[in-house]
Write a protein that binds this DNA or RNA. Structure first.
Lengths: 280, 280
DNA sequence: TTCAGTATTGAATAATTTATTCCGTATTGG
DNA sequence: CCAATACGGAATAAATTATTCAATACTGAA
């Protein structure tokens, strides 16, 4: 950053050639990355030695030194204002991916904003003390449910999950007040999940919900309602974002649990177990 | 950032000298700025030519190219951290989440760097033309596999996936050269998947792989190998990052397919279908 | 275990890039 | 008009980087 400013600041006390060099660098800073001093000289229409002298005059050790400084300037600038869409040479694919990543980034960042810290801690605490956990989600949310099941099992927490709603209800029958249920649904209206929620309420099983961020039947029932942002205008991208945000929230819970129970021991056990299995 | 992640991810398949170089760079990234290839070689205790070869092996044009990439990595890391470090009272939870999101962000960004654009397009094309797709991944990767299955089904693409390896093999029996197989595995060494890979090869079924970014049996067999970054030092976080990166890559493929086949129509059909089902 | 084939490494060397020297030209101030 | 000085580029020196090649280590199959 400083580098380009420095150049700009000295513009008016430069000779013609120096001025040409400065202008070129300011206008094409991003090109410099792949230019040698000779190439730059050619581009500007001067000699290679003049390029080097220009660098030294600005206080840099030599050409590579200036080049590095310019690169740094570009990067700090671009990371600070990441919205600057480079015109021209970004391919369709790059644009696509950038858009997706940008939206995703926002959705993930949103999680801490729409969930009270207390809710997250409470959720972790409930899972922590539970002797058994039932995770349920169907359709798209089923993937999130199984992801969470995997995490919790890794911690040594007995966790049930099944993609069949009827079986999930049966599994719920094995739970009690010292267990916990986590219900995942984008809309929060899924009939099967609501049935599970009612059952949990009735049996006084602690109930966590993970839904889109708008009041809905499921979150209203839950002891600890958790939310993920929804509402991207792109109908193809939105489901992806919601799902990833839900998974992200689950991962956060997982990490909280890791901290609570000092789980390194358990993890080691798990690693050992895997090694044993592999050798078998 | 991605540069250092890339190096870290390949640590375990490096030779002794390469490993020394990698360690030195990771530990002293900030020093690299003022090192020539010769100096680096001396510092590590190897030859200058080995340094250059190391750079090229990692996919850089040469030493200056790597040097620049490392510089950029350091700068983006530092600016991003500055960006996010809110002064004073960040809670434990906030720090945790920030670290997770930061790492995740980097891993996702890395995808476009470690996968050639062509590979992504090729992968999309193969899926596009396939009459049937088998997605297979077991354990952690099973979640990714089911996610991908879900996406592809949304596009109206007949997609098979099952968490049972034996059944997956049976499913593969229904495929032909006009189909496609996508095998997902972090290590790329899973025996069941390798069996599937061999079968696909033998039957001339186009084979896509999605593994960690290091050469492995699976990716070597594949017609189109795809990669996700691995290698976060935190054993608890790394699996999460890898999985999310894999899913992200699948989502990118999905979006590419959306573009190719003008799928808006199909999606509408799907939405209608869901509405009908809900009312029923 | 042996052996062919492959990969790794570093010394030597080639190629490229960068920095300096040197000289002609232009400009300025006296 | 004449030093004195600054400027710019060609030539050249110095340095850095990249490649080649030969020796060695390693790998996998018979």
């Amino acid at each position: 950053m400083v580098c380009l400013l420095k150049i700009r600041g000295m513009l008016d006390q430069m000779s013609v050639i120096e001025r040409k060099l400065a202008d070129f660098i300011l206008d094409n800073a991003h090109l410099l990355r792949d230019y040698s001093s000779q190439q730059l000289a050619d581009a500007v229409g001067t000699s290679q030695s003049s390029v080097v002298k220009f660098c030294q005059k600005l206080g840099y050790k030599g050409y590579p030194d200036l080049k590095l400084a310019v690169s740094e300037a570009i990067i700090t600038a671009s990371t600070l204002q990441r919205d600057s869409n480079e015109p021209g040479n970004a391919t369709n694919l790059q644009q696509l991916v950038e858009q997706l990543q940008f939206s995703l980034h926002n959705h993930l960042r949103g999680i801490l904003e729409i969930n009270e810290e207390k809710a997250l801690h409470d959720a972790a605490a409930l899972l922590q003390r539970a002797d058994r956990v039932l995770v349920a989600g169907f359709g798209k949310s089923g993937i999130v449910a199984h992801d969470m099941q995997f995490r919790l099992l890794q911690l040594g927490k007995l966790t049930l999950a099944h993609s069949d709603p009827a079986l999930s209800l049966q599994l719920a029958g094995t739970l009690g007040p010292q267990s916990a249920v986590l219900l995942i649904s984008e809309s929060g209206q899924n009939a099967d999940l609501l049935k599970l929620a009612r059952y949990a309420k009735q049996q006084q099983i602690p109930l966590l919900s993970l839904t889109s961020y708008k009041s809905n039947a499921l979150s209203l029932t839950a002891d600890v309602p958790l939310f993920a942002l929804s509402g991207d205008e792109n109908v193809r991208i939105n489901p992806i974002l919601v799902q990833m945000a839900q998974q992200h929230l689950c991962h956060i819970l997982y990490l909280l649990l890791c901290q609570q129970q000092n789980s390194d021991h358990q993890l080691e056990e798990n690693v050992k177990l895997l090694q044993v299995l592999k050798q078998a």
